[in-house]
């Protein structure tokens, strides 16, 4: 458990249409860290995740996961260590039952069926939805779908979890449940989001991406209280740090 670091070294990526989405981005994430990656729309967050997962390859620069440099050859190894939860759970839940979906990864690892069942049961229990195992994904609510999507990567037993907007389009209670769930995980977590309150609650470190580069990288509480910096990057203070509409006082006001 000591090598789950993520090292991104001067990575560049240009889309086929010439748009430079990532411009010399470097980032070092340590074992067990929870890092929130924030930035305005089009800042390069999603591209960064695609690069990190080896779904696209940098035109320049290097990504190292643990001690393994990311390349086509090392992809299977890296994807066992690092799993990603997609923003739209419908992209991730493609099987006909929740069980089969959660079993999809372990079965691809060619595990014995008994081991597959054990892993699925464990993953479903971990996220608290064992009762949904035989349900069809399209019948689940938004929050349940998101939870099932998280279970479907937990069954791969990854060391590093990458989450793309885990709280987007959830009702407040489902959002809270997902946050509590993620808070309980010991994994190294890399979370992109526009939900700055969630980043504040879950991530000890926040990284602001602007124009495909890192604009700021600091402890969340320190970074997310800098109104000017956030504004210059197309963001604003987390709602919990903004003034109360009735009394005008910020909840963080001393």
């Amino acid at each position: 458990m000591s090598h789950h670091k993520v090292e991104i070294q001067d990575v560049h990526y240009r889309y086929p249409d010439g748009y430079p989405a990532v411009n010399g981005l470097s980032l070092h994430i340590r074992h067990g860290e929870s890092v929130g990656i924030i930035g305005a729309n089009g800042a390069g967050k999603s591209t960064l995740l695609l690069l990190l997962m080896g779904l696209i390859f940098p035109s320049q620069g290097k990504i190292v996961i643990g001690d393994i440099p990311l390349s086509k050859k090392t992809l299977p190894l890296i994807r066992q260590r690092m799993s990603m939860v997609f923003q739209d759970p419908d992209d991730q839940l493609f099987m006909t039952t929740v069980f089969d979906d959660v079993a999809f990864g372990p079965r691809n690892l060619k595990l014995e069926e008994a081991e597959v069942t054990a892993r699925v049961t464990q993953a479903l229990a971990r996220v608290g939805i064992p009762h949904l195992r035989d349900r069809a994904p399209y019948k689940l609510s938004g929050g349940e779908k998101r939870t099932a999507a998280i279970a479907s990567v937990l069954s791969m037993d990854p060391d590093i979890l990458v989450l793309d907007e885990p709280t987007a389009s959830l009702d407040p209670q489902s959002r809270r449940r997902i946050m509590d769930l993620l808070k309980g995980f010991q994994h190294t977590k890399i979370i992109t989001s526009h939900d700055l309150d969630m980043v504040l609650a879950l991530c000890e470190r926040a990284v602001v991406v602007k124009d495909g580069k890192i604009a700021a990288d600091a402890p969340s509480l320190e970074l997310l209280t800098q109104a000017e910096l956030l504004e210059s990057c197309g963001l604003e203070l987390p709602l919990s740090l903004q003034g109360c509409p009735r009394c005008g006082l910020s909840s963080s006001a001393e």
């Binding site: 994807r79 990603m84 997609f86 992209d91 990864g105 691809n108 060619k110």
Partner: peptide, 23 residues
């Protein structure tokens, strides 16, 4: 677009064209 994302989600969980549906 959707197909692309679904394929990516499958690839990330070790899909290589072989499909295992259990016993």
């Amino acid at each position: 677009d959707r197909a692309q994302r679904v394929y990516q989600a499958m690839a990330l969980r070790g899909f290589t064209g072989e499909y295992f549906s259990g016993a």
